[in-house]
Simulated scan of single mutants.
Amino acid sequence: MSPQSPPARHEQAAPSTPTARDGAPASPLRFGYGTNGLADLRLDDALGLLADLGYDGVGLTLDHMHLDPLAPELAARTRRLAHRLDELGLGVTVETGARYVLDPRRKHGPSLLDPDPGDRARRTDLLLRAVRVAADLGAHAVHCFSGITPPGTDEETAWKRLAESLAPVLEAAAGSGVPLAVEPEPGHLLADLDGFHRLRHTLGDPEHLGLTLDIGHCQCLEPLPPADCVRAAAPWLRHVQIEDMRRGVHEHLPFGDGEIDFPPVLDALAATGYQGLTVVELPRHSHAGPHFAERSLPFLRRAATATSRTTRSGEPSDTPGREPHP
């Protein structure tokens, strides 16, 4: 299985006139929704909802309410989940951004950068578990992030810890055939595309190190427009997260509530040949998760099938994929 190919068990012969799973016009892109935005639903209910709405897959965040990676009988629970995904025809990527799965008092703690080697090892162990789960599910990637540089830690030490902590995870990913997709996260040590390339070069450009590109993060802090970020990231792209966002504000917003012009972004993404999932990332909207899941897919399909008229000067495209702001 190539790093960008969806799991073989979900492949279907292409119809003569492409349509989405619910009969709507299809784009080359495959859309999913993250379970971190459906945290108030049981996992089976969340999967059923996404299948009924016509999503192609799910971004599965390993957490205490959704395939707890630390609870007993993980392998058996993963096998049951793989069967359920097959029944529903859903692809999957495995995400590791649960806030308190390792430490009930420290958000995203411990990290790969912590001063205590034992704490770093706990995060590495979570990622190793995620790789095994991803392999058993036929996932197209395992997502991770660096973490925030701890107080009193110099930058060189932080990068050294990150590289060392990820080394066994990359070895496991290579053995399983599932790429590790590191996400640049605003405020973290690895915050942007330049940071990804620094890590990649430090590790010797390993084949199974890829990139999770969050489209909102591109709008938030990258110097290039989001569509240009997609093109620049294309050779390493293994997972995509998507939501609206405003420049300079790291807040995941429903589509139409931010500043992103989506048709050019999705045009660029389709042109790369990316075959993994493009997953809606709205973790702070779980209180209304079914509503936003229902609203998001039609928006993305309109944007993906619209003809972009973005000019080189950056004028927004006048297409149905762009919702007006109040």
Rank of each mutant, 00 (worst) to 15 (best):
G89S: 11
Y100M: 06
P104Y: 03
L53M: 07
G57Y: 00
R77A: 10
G91R: 15
R79N: 14
G54D: 04
D63S: 15
G91A: 15
L102C: 11
A82K: 03
E73F: 11
Y55R: 05
D63K: 02
E73D: 15
L90P: 07
G89P: 04
G59H: 05
G48P: 01
H83W: 14
R79E: 15
L67P: 01
L85E: 10
L88F: 06
L81I: 01
G91M: 12
P69L: 08
E73P: 03
Y100E: 04
R99F: 08
Y55H: 03
L62Q: 10
L67A: 05
H83Y: 12
M65W: 15
D103K: 01
T93Y: 01
E87H: 13
G97T: 00
P69T: 05
V94D: 11
V92M: 04
L81N: 01
L85C: 10
M65I: 08
V92S: 07
L53R: 14
G54E: 04
H66K: 02
R77G: 10
R80F: 07
G91H: 12
E87I: 11
L60V: 03
R105N: 12
L70E: 13
V94Y: 09
L53W: 09
A98L: 02
E87P: 06
A98H: 03
L53P: 06
V101T: 12
E87D: 14
A82E: 02
D86K: 09
